[in-house]
């Protein structure tokens, strides 16, 4: 017959060191962690303030405008991936020739910045070197054209636009993730 197992009564289930309960407390680590916590919340606060200002898009800092003799471009220098935005082209009277305006936009506007829709619909679209030239009927000064954008991927993209034969506008757009 095998020996019966030996049992010892449990006298105290709480581990002790130097007659004090050993809980594994590490107060010096915890003090460092509290300092880290404060730094993280300050960082979060700064991030939120920057976001309200538009540093990550969709705010005052993100909005930009460039102007030439023939064209004023309103756009967002900071976009967000898959978030819709609008790029507005405002033509000066000098851009209107024989009842039409022509607008060149680089391929980056169509592809990387994800042009979804152009309003009004162009009368003609001509593929040209590095982009597309649109032709719109125009009878009044300050004609407006809007292109709806929705970038698919984050990155930094360079774009060029303008009225063919006149000074172009070049811009850099940052697309946030």
């Amino acid at each position: 017959m095998p020996d019966a197992p030996e049992y010892k009564p449990v006298e105290d289930s709480v581990p002790k060191v130097d007659n004090a309960v050993a809980v594994g407390e590490n107060l010096s680590f915890q003090r460092k962690w509290w300092r880290f916590e404060r730094a993280v919340w300050v960082f979060f606060g700064l991030i939120i303030l920057a976001d309200v200002a538009g540093a990550f898009g969709r705010g005052p800092v993100a909005k930009a405008q460039q102007q030439t003799d023939s064209l004023t471009l309103h756009y967002e220098r900071i976009e967000r991936t898959t978030t819709p935005s609008t790029m507005t082209f405002q033509f000066a009277p000098s851009a209107i020739q024989q009842g039409h305006v022509h607008l060149f936009v680089s391929q980056s506007v169509i592809k990387q910045l994800g042009a979804q829709r152009i309003s009004p619909q162009p009368e003609q679209s001509i593929l040209s070197d590095g982009g597309i030239t649109y032709t719109f009927p125009a009878t009044s000064a300050n004609a407006l054209v809007e292109i709806s954008l929705e970038p698919a991927l984050p990155g930094v993209y360079h774009m060029e636009t303008g009225v063919p034969g006149m000074q172009p506008i070049q811009a850099r757009v940052v697309v946030m993730p």
Partner: peptide, 10 residues
Amino acid sequence: GAIIDGTPLV
């Protein structure tokens, strides 16, 4: 473990 879960505190 201490970074992710912390340590017990008295």
